[in-house]
């Protein structure tokens, strides 16, 4: 108990602010934040500088104007957006009823559903596409005489490759599952459903009027993650040779380096705005409750 004896301490005057530690921590924290800021901001600023500075022409925003007139831009962007919307629709239609049913009446299936929905995380997209392309190759060999043959051909229509929607649904499953699971836990779906059933609501009514409105934030979250995934997905589209937006950026980079960087900066900005909109919408819903 000698630890307490005052003579072991420097005779600090009363004016001294509390021990020196906090000051050291503040310096340390400032240094970390500064280094992080440099590392994360420099590429963004430099990319922007790269797009606006042309040797001999000074500073112009031409590259951004050229995005829209570039060959194939509109088609690629529309294709990616269309794929995104289709993927969101399919993935929500598949997961929401399944997750609701499992949560409400067959909790035993929940671990299975969780594993099934998490599994795609373990399988890198490149290996997934290796398998898919093999299936698409083999398909015609074995199924040539059956109606499946037509199906295999039609899902690879370059104007709207359904096969990409199918694979993107699988890739989106883990994120959608987690977003919806969090949403369902937050609203205590069971009580809601019991209350609504008790009041005589039918199942479709219940789904559309009770569950979906209460899950708005989670559904928006899941949709955003899915959209971001589809708009950024390069591996599968390129290896199956479809001209989606990221593949288009890659293709034009050879001839129009500035434009491709401009698109990259642009797409980051869009993601940022979407995320901000989403988080503020989520906050509004939370405070509205």
């Amino acid at each position: 108990m000698a630890a307490l004896s005052p003579q072991t301490l420097p005779a600090a005057t009363k004016a001294t602010p509390a021990p020196g530690r906090p000051h050291r921590i503040r310096v340390w924290r400032g240094a970390i934040l500064l280094v992080a800021a440099v590392y994360f901001l420099v590429p963004l600023i430099a990319s922007f500088a790269f797009t606006v500075k042309t040797p001999g022409k000074g500073v112009t925003l031409d590259a951004y104007g050229q995005i829209f007139s570039a060959e194939g831009f509109g088609r690629a962007l529309l294709l990616s957006l269309g794929l995104g919307v289709a993927t969101i629709a399919v993935v929500l239609l598949l997961t929401l009823p399944a997750m609701l049913a499992v949560r409400l009446s067959v909790p035993r299936l929940r671990p299975i559903l969780e594993v099934v929905c998490t599994l795609p995380l373990v399988v890198p997209p490149i290996t997934f596409v290796a398998g898919i392309s093999k299936v698409l190759q083999w398909g015609p060999d074995y199924l040539a005489s059956t109606p499946f043959y037509q199906t295999i051909i039609s899902i690879q229509n370059p104007d709207f490759p359904v096969v990409l929607v199918l694979t993107y649904v699988v890739l989106a499953l883990p994120f959608v599952y987690r977003a919806l699971d969090a949403g369902l836990s937050a609203i205590d779906a069971r009580t809601l459903v019991e209350a609504a059933r008790n009041l005589g609501a039918s199942w479709p009514h219940l789904l559309l009027r009770v569950i979906v409105p209460n899950l708005r934030a989670a559904l928006a979250n899941a949709s955003f993650l899915t959209l971001a995934l589809v708009l950024g997905e390069f591996t599968i589209a390129r290896l199956l040779s479809f001209q989606t937006f990221p593949v288009w950026i890659y293709t034009i980079s050879g001839s129009q380096a500035q434009v491709s960087v401009a698109v990259s900066v642009f797409s980051l900005l869009i993601t940022w705005l979407l995320l901000l909109a989403l988080s503020s919408a989520g906050a509004r819903q939370r405070s509205g409750k």
Partner: peptide
């Protein structure tokens, strides 16, 4: 401002991990 005494000795400036 002020001080804290334990058995007459001033512990106001003793770090938390060396107080008794």
């Amino acid at each position: 401002e002020g001080e804290i005494l334990v058995d007459g000795s001033d512990i106001t400036r003793v770090p938390a991990n060396r107080r008794d």
